[in-house]
Nucleic acid binder design. Structure first.
Lengths: 193, 193, 193, 193
DNA sequence: AATGAATGAGAGTTCATTCAT
DNA sequence: GATGAATGAACTCTCATTCAT
């Protein structure tokens, strides 16, 4: 395996990571291809060798978020029980408080922006990534023996989206701590039947 | 008060309403001045007589949302007790389910988009509008005799933001019904001390 | 009628004329919007106020050719008989010998370039302009009492296209004179039944 | 002669044939190097080993057309007399009616496009290829004992160019049949002195 | 000789904003 | 106040050509 192959793959990966990060901070529309190219240290013209359109780059950012999510759930899956896993998830959210308080949830704000489109299918793709998280959460609630695990998943993930939005709209990271603590207490309070 | 003045005021008001609506559906960046002008039936060149920049129009959209919010809370304030008022608020959210499921909460998604800026002060303005809602909700919880009414306000408004985002990301209006019902039950369960 | 109205119309007309001329000399693909803008003395960005896309400008060039053709046939229609009119047409072609020897027939070469596309409908539009000429010529042959006037029209117009192409490919304006003389003699030789 | 050399030659030849075909269908400017490379099944980067610039590839397409023309005239030269040879030429044109009705004469449309340039010399080269055909036709008319065989050659080749252009502009292959038949009758009518 | 990747100079197009009347 | 027109900066995308191996 030559250095070139590794380099090429690394470049693509660098572009995806840069797209995810810059888009999180600036939003899709205020992010130019040049912004992403600069962040990834790639010449502008070369970006198009890896991604044919800006929309493809946004899709790549989305799948980068999906990948990050998978890394997280894989780590959490090593915890002994579902209650610990759910609490680990919330603790992860709280640990990102400053980023969330500044730019909101990466996937959530991206989905919110893309949902206002009705062409291109990126909106659907964003929904799919959110669904990945919902499904994992639902599985934990089911393992906990809760009735209506899907509804609980909506509540938990919705709470996360809401608290991220409020934290960033109010520019108050404390919102993340406060609501995070409430969610932890709530998870603790759920009775295993 | 001459007809001219009234006409001018009407035009300005029409532009504000159009800005609020179009921006809700398309987002700030994908909305052009021409879009708003068309929706308000005002010649493009004339928009600048009322609003010197696009940012001023966005600010106008925000204050239009604030006005709508005030209309709503004024109506709710006529209800006999705080519990009824809070439940009326939630019912209002649910009644807008289809709009929310398509474009999210008008103020919330606007705030999310503006929060990614760090110049112009529109982000702060968006926070202020959200704060208006939080303060009203907090007042109701306080009247209800709840401890930590500010925390409860965050929870309720956060839940609304979260369920709107999920409903629109998943394109499932049913999310609004389900979470709305949960919030109503929760409000009902709060004990007056 | 204000100066503004006249100016606006004049600008659009100037752009159409410039498009027709520049495209004739450079071909569609080698002509940039900036080329046309410069030739019409219009700022680049302003071109899009009058024509939404480059293709619309090319369509405008085509209709400009159609207009020129109509002016010509209107003039020829004042001649007493169809034979004189046909000969007048050929003489007009020969009088343009130098332009044809350098860039070919404006409409013909444009059609040839556009025919290689299979989207956008400009190819069809080009065919329509050519058809205008064919129809007028056919009418003259019919008035002359010729059988198969449509076939004769194809022959005459085809000969014009062919001689223009050869004159410009060989860079020999003399081809226009020689073939022009032959066509005049041919028209003279047609018997009125 | 090693396999490598033969392969290299084959690749070059494949590129020339591909250039001729793709350029005929798309025109020079709308044809990318990548288009030709793909059609020839050659990696893009490798094209430049055989042709230093795009213009060289276009020149190669022209010489490919010249080669095809030579193959044709060689075949026709085996026919017993000049009249048969000319009629064979016209029949060949008619047999290509569908291609001509779609994309025009390969050499003619290429010449028309290149004539709009005034640098690079490709225009001159195109004229040379057209001249090859004219010279061969002129030779036949001379053998037939016609006066002014060069003028007759212009007429015949011009008619071919014209009918191809009209057939493709009108998208009517029937034009090729009709004009082809007329040319055959004309050739038949020429008296050998 | 061969090849995927890299590069940068435009091209078309959009749009906030300004101008002239 | 009202309005169509004007302006130019910025952006996405393409592609001939070159590079590195």
């Amino acid at each position: 395996m030559s250095a070139r192959v590794r380099t090429a793959g690394a470049k693509r990966q660098r572009l995806m990571a840069a797209a995810a990060q810059v888009v999180h901070r600036q939003g899709v529309e205020r992010t130019t291809i040049a912004d992403i190219a600069r962040a990834a240290d790639v010449p502008v013209g070369n970006v198009y060798y890896y991604f044919k359109t800006k929309d493809e780059l946004v899709a790549a950012a989305l799948s980068e978020h999906a990948r990050q999510l998978e890394l997280l759930t894989d780590r959490l899956d090593r915890l002994p029980g579902p209650r610990e896993r759910l609490k680990g998830l919330v603790e992860g959210w709280v640990s990102q408080r400053d980023l969330a308080a500044r730019y909101g949830c990466p996937t959530g704000t991206l989905a919110a922006e893309l949902d206002k489109r009705d062409e291109g299918g990126l909106d659907v793709e964003a929904g799919r990534v959110i669904r990945l998280l919902l499904d994992w959460v639902e599985r934990q609630f089911r393992e906990l023996g809760q009735p209506e695990p899907d509804g609980l998943a909506l509540t938990l993930v919705g709470a996360y989206q809401g608290m991220s939005l409020l934290a960033s709209a109010l520019r108050e990271p404390g919102v993340m701590d406060r609501e995070g603590a409430r969610l932890l207490a709530w998870i603790d309070s759920l009775e295993a039947p």
